Amino acid sequence: MATINPYLNFPGNTEEAFNFYKSVFGGEFLALQRFKDAPADAPGCSDMSKADGEKIMHIALPIGKSNVLMATDALESMGQKLEAGNNFTLSLFTESEEETERLFNGLSAGGTIQMPLEKTFWGAYFGMFIDKFGMRWNINYDLPK
């Protein structure tokens, strides 16, 4: 069955926030990827400034036994603007492509798909949408290696 974790959006200070959270919760980051680490052909990354390239594309900090706090920097240069309500996302992690498709199709019905399910450069089957109630979702299945 899928697990659910919060995904936070910050206006450029994700690294500072997560270093603080790490000092409180302890542990080590499971992931820390900067925008400059994305392939040049990734959407919005080809003409990114050097400063934006240093911002956090994805970071993950385990909290307790089975929870992960994750985040990104929302970059205005990529057309992202933080407002109350879009500063977090519910992130589902699934156990199969079939479960991913079932949950994606069910939860996105009547909503707005922001990124259809696709295989990504980070090795996942992933999609994003806003459901018909205005809640933001990511669905991620880590593909077998």
Rank of each mutant, 00 (worst) to 15 (best):
N9F: 10
A109I: 04
A40T: 13
A71S: 12
N86C: 08
I139A: 00
L143Y: 05
F29R: 09
I113L: 03
I139L: 11
P39E: 11
K22Q: 15
D131Q: 10
V68C: 01
T100A: 10
S77K: 08
C45L: 14
D142A: 13
G111Y: 06
Y125I: 04
T72Y: 05
G106K: 12
F133E: 14
F35V: 01
L82P: 01
M57V: 09
L90G: 00
R34I: 04
I139C: 05
F126T: 11
G111T: 05
P144Y: 12
K81C: 06
P62F: 12
T89R: 00
L82E: 03
A60S: 14
A2N: 04
D47I: 03
E16A: 10
M1T: 08
D131F: 11
D131E: 04
V24A: 13
M70H: 00
K50G: 03
L30H: 08
F88Q: 06
T89Y: 03
A31V: 07
M57E: 02
F10H: 03
I130C: 05
F93P: 00
K119R: 15
K22R: 15
Q114F: 08
A42I: 03
F126G: 05
P116I: 13
E54I: 04
A38S: 11
A17D: 02
D52R: 02
Q80N: 05
T94A: 06
A51L: 06
I4E: 02
G85I: 02
E54D: 12
N138S: 09
P39S: 09
G12C: 08
A109W: 01
N13W: 01
L82F: 10
A31Y: 05
F88D: 01
G12Q: 07
N5A: 02
T112A: 15
P39T: 14
F93I: 11
N19W: 06
L82H: 09
E83Y: 08
D47M: 14
N138E: 11
P62I: 10
G44F: 09
K55C: 04
G106P: 00
I56L: 01
Y7G: 02
M128G: 07
I63H: 05
N140M: 07
A51N: 12
P62R: 07
G111S: 12
P39H: 13
Q33M: 12
R136A: 07
E76Q: 15
G64H: 09
K132W: 01
D47A: 14
L117D: 04
L32Y: 09
K36D: 06
Q114H: 07
H58Y: 12
N67K: 10
I113P: 04
A2M: 12
G127T: 04
F126C: 03
E118V: 10
N140H: 06
Y7M: 11
G12M: 01
G110P: 02
N67I: 10
A42C: 14
K119S: 13
P43S: 11
G111F: 11
